[in-house]
Amino acid sequence: MYTAGSADVALFTDAIESSPSANQSSDGNGSAANDGQAGATQDGATATPTPTASPVPDVGSAIATTTLAYAALTDVDRQLEYAMAHWKDYNTAEYGTMNPIGGDCANYVSQTLIARGWKQRSDWYNRDAGAAHSATWTYCPTMDPWLTANAAEFGLTRRSLDERDKVKVGDIVFYDWNDNDSPDHTTIVSEVFTEPDGTIRIKSASHNQDGPYRDLDEMITVQHPGGTAWFHTFDA
């Protein structure tokens, strides 16, 4: 969950094999959170969380054990640390919430970009706990073209859905639920991995629906059939 702290590490001479629990996440990689996270969505839909239980090997058979410390050292570390801290616990004291006026997804994504190192500016801001804010900060249909227009300055590249092999953790996703060329939702990529069959899976953190690891393909096929998505990826 990108939270600073210690992690126990064990070294084994043989591979550890275990069967996934019946409650194993459908993530395919044992993420602590899975596709569905409880919470209200921008369009009123809800999802029910599914518990995850990952098998733990017996460390008594390890030939060595130690503890390593994880710290948020890079811009992406800090961005995801913030995203994980506030996907459920809204930072309303600093940024307010835009749910009463249509949805907080863009507000949340903008906050994670501040944690990444971006600075507020005259054309992108949220002040006085949301009392004053720009549409580029809080409104998807305005934020998306603003990012495109300033892509060179921000070090971003706009990519289509079939360019998912270029997507990394920390990149921005926009979704168009009814494929009318106007975005309805935005999230921050929190996980990218490849299935055994070569399928690239992308998970992201968001508000509306609140969750840390929401599955992109589920969102545009199951939750919003006929939807599509695109990315703004960081060049470095």
Rank of each mutant, 00 (worst) to 15 (best):
N208A: 10
H207A: 13
T92M: 02
V109A: 08
S160Q: 14
Y213F: 07
P183V: 12
A93Q: 02
L11P: 00
G102H: 12
F12C: 04
I16D: 09
A205L: 05
G36D: 13
D58L: 04
K168I: 00
V189L: 08
L11D: 01
G102K: 12
F231Q: 03
V56T: 12
N150T: 09
D235P: 00
Y95H: 06
M143Q: 15
D197K: 07
A152R: 03
S54E: 08
E191A: 14
Q42T: 14
E195F: 01
A93R: 01
Q37N: 13
R116K: 07
H133T: 10
S19F: 04
Y108V: 08
W177R: 13
S110K: 01
P20D: 03
G60R: 08
S25N: 09
T228E: 09
V173I: 14
A106W: 01
S190I: 00
S204V: 00
F231C: 07
M1I: 12
I101R: 12
N23H: 10
N126I: 07
D104M: 07
S18N: 13
A205R: 08
S54W: 08
G227D: 04
K203Y: 13
D162Q: 14
A33F: 12
V189Q: 06
A69G: 08
M1S: 10
P212W: 01
A62Q: 07
A85N: 10
A229I: 01
F193E: 04
T74A: 07
T142R: 11
T112I: 06
L147G: 09
A33E: 07
D27L: 02
I16N: 13
W87T: 05
A115Q: 02
D235T: 14
W124C: 02
E17I: 11
T138W: 05
G103H: 03
A10H: 12
Q120N: 06
G117N: 03
L147V: 07
A115C: 02
R214I: 11
V192P: 03
C140N: 14
G155C: 02
A151F: 05
D43A: 12
Y95W: 10
I200S: 05
D58G: 09
V59Q: 13
T221C: 11
D184R: 02
P57V: 08
W87S: 01
D144P: 03
P212Q: 03
Y2M: 09
A83N: 03
T187P: 00
G5L: 05
G155R: 05
I63E: 10
L156F: 11
S6P: 02
S54M: 14
A33G: 08
T136M: 03
G60S: 13
